[in-house]
Simulated assay, not measured.
Amino acid sequence: MAGTNKLSGIVDKINTLPEFARSRALTLFFGKVVPFTGTAGIRIESLDHDRCVIRLVNKRRVQNHIGGVHAVASLLLAESATGFLVGMNVSDDKVPVIKTAHAEYTRRAKGDMTVEAYLTAEQRERIRMEDKGEVTVPVTIRDSEGKEPIELAMIWAWTPKRR
């Protein structure tokens, strides 16, 4: 699929690299564009127009007082994955903004965290075609045991850029 904006064009080029190099290249690129993701140590496993998978290793710098990934770091993962995905699909004349982030912590997380966000074809079409709007981006967060310790709802909006 051809890039719909500058960001997706760059990511599409990165995705032509050999498979072993893609994740590192995506991670380095987004660490430069969104410095806090690099600071936190987020690793982008895969990103395209439909789906984003990112991971955070449970290291000391992102831990809470009981040794798990801090709640805010978990939200950073969800916000980053959904934001990267919306950013891949919104045209350059619009700006994406997070509107709502809702998290319900249902169980204690163990170890590393992996987040997967995705958009349906209908959602992608709306983002590309509508001048402004909002979309709930489905997102799942799993711990190292494969369990889902947090139920998340991430709503993104987009509006025309001010000139």
Rank of each mutant, 00 (worst) to 15 (best):
K59L: 11
R55Q: 10
I10T: 14
A109W: 00
E125Q: 11
D143A: 00
I10A: 02
I66E: 08
R126T: 11
A103T: 10
G68D: 12
L26M: 14
A40L: 12
V62N: 10
F84T: 08
I10M: 09
K132T: 09
N58R: 07
V72M: 14
D131Y: 08
T114W: 03
R24A: 11
T106G: 05
E125Y: 08
R55E: 09
A78E: 02
H49D: 15
E116F: 04
A103K: 03
I10K: 09
T39E: 04
K32H: 10
T159L: 13
G41L: 07
R43L: 13
Y118H: 12
I98Q: 10
G68E: 10
K6F: 05
L85H: 02
V139G: 04
P138E: 04
A157R: 02
D143V: 00
V69P: 11
W156Y: 04
A121M: 02
V33D: 00
H102R: 12
A73R: 00
L56A: 06
A121V: 12
A40Y: 05
Q63R: 14
L119K: 03
G9T: 12
I155A: 06
D131L: 13
T82G: 10
Q63D: 02
I10P: 03
L56E: 08
Y105C: 11
V11R: 00
T100I: 09
L26N: 01
V53C: 07
F36R: 12
A153Y: 08
F36L: 09
V69R: 00
A121Q: 14
K161M: 04
T16Q: 13
R124Y: 01
V135W: 05
M113D: 00
S23E: 04
P96L: 01
M88Q: 04
L152S: 06
V115Y: 01
H65A: 13
R61G: 03
D12P: 04
K32I: 01
R163F: 03
A78N: 11
A157N: 06
D92R: 13
V57S: 08
R107Y: 02
E19G: 14
F20S: 10
A2S: 11
R128F: 12
A78H: 04
L77P: 03
I98R: 04
K94W: 00
K6H: 06
V34D: 02
A78D: 08
I44G: 02
F30L: 13
K6T: 12
R51L: 11
V95R: 02
L76R: 10
V97S: 06
E104V: 15
A40D: 05
K147T: 13
T159V: 15
A81S: 14
E151V: 15
A109C: 09
Q63I: 03
G9W: 00
I98S: 11
T140A: 01
T120S: 13
R124A: 02
R24V: 08
A109I: 03
A2H: 13
K59R: 11
K132L: 06
V86N: 10
D48W: 04
A121T: 05
P96T: 03
S144M: 06
C52H: 05
K6D: 09
P160K: 15
F30N: 07
R61T: 08
L47M: 12
E134T: 10
S8K: 01
Y118A: 06
T120E: 11
V115C: 15
S144C: 10
R51N: 03
R163G: 14
R108A: 14
S80I: 04
L56N: 00
A73Y: 01
Q123N: 05
G87L: 05
V72H: 04
T140V: 13
E104W: 14
S74Q: 15
D131I: 14
L77R: 06
I141R: 10
